[in-house]
Computed example of a mutant assay.
Amino acid sequence: MYKVKVYVTLRESVLDPQGEAVKNALHSMNYGEVGSVRIGKYMELEIEKGSKEVEETVNEICSRLLSNPVIENYRYEIEECVAL
């Protein structure tokens, strides 16, 4: 079994109004040293496939469902889980 950590973020060229709102709130709380904030999504998946199929499956899941490839980028980390 594999544990996959997926991170989805807006592309740099896409405006992030939620991140801008958080930055403004931080500035109003006297955290003026914060230069920019980008908001994203984090997901964990457990996949029961052979190691050769996991990366292909994760790429397909991310591009078809978990992210919008027009405005978002994704990256992931795959960890092999050891059964106890």
Rank of each mutant, 00 (worst) to 15 (best):
V6S: 02
E33M: 13
Y74R: 02
V14P: 11
T57G: 02
P17E: 03
E20Y: 06
K5N: 12
E44R: 09
R38T: 10
L65K: 10
M1D: 02
T57W: 03
T9R: 11
A83M: 03
I47C: 06
I47W: 02
Y74E: 01
L65N: 14
L10H: 07
S36H: 14
M1I: 03
Y2I: 00
H27N: 08
R75S: 13
V34A: 12
Y31K: 07
V8W: 04
E48L: 06
V82T: 04
E60G: 10
S51T: 08
S67R: 07
V4T: 01
R64A: 08
E12D: 13
N30P: 00
V6I: 14
R38Y: 13
N59H: 15
V8K: 03
G35D: 10
S51K: 11
R38M: 08
N68E: 08
H27E: 06
K3F: 00
K41L: 12
S63L: 15
K5R: 11
L15R: 10
R64G: 02
L10N: 08
Y76T: 01
G40M: 14
E72F: 05
I78G: 04
L26Q: 00
L15V: 07
E48D: 15
I61H: 06
E56H: 06
Y42H: 15
E80S: 03
E56K: 12
S36A: 15
V22S: 01
V37I: 14
Y76L: 01
E46D: 13
V82F: 06
G19C: 08
L15T: 05
Y31P: 02
E53I: 00
E44N: 13
S67Y: 06
I47M: 04
S13Y: 02
L65G: 10
Y2T: 00
D16A: 07
E79S: 04
V34N: 11
G35N: 15
N73K: 02
E12W: 04
L84R: 10
G19R: 08
R38C: 11
I39F: 11
Y2F: 14
R38V: 12
G50L: 05
R38P: 13
V82Q: 06
V34F: 09
L45S: 07
E55S: 12
T9W: 06
I47G: 05
E33Y: 07
L45E: 10
S51P: 13
N73P: 07
E44K: 09
R38W: 10
P17T: 07
P69R: 12
I78T: 02
P17D: 02
G35S: 15
V34R: 07
A21S: 15
N24H: 09
V14W: 12
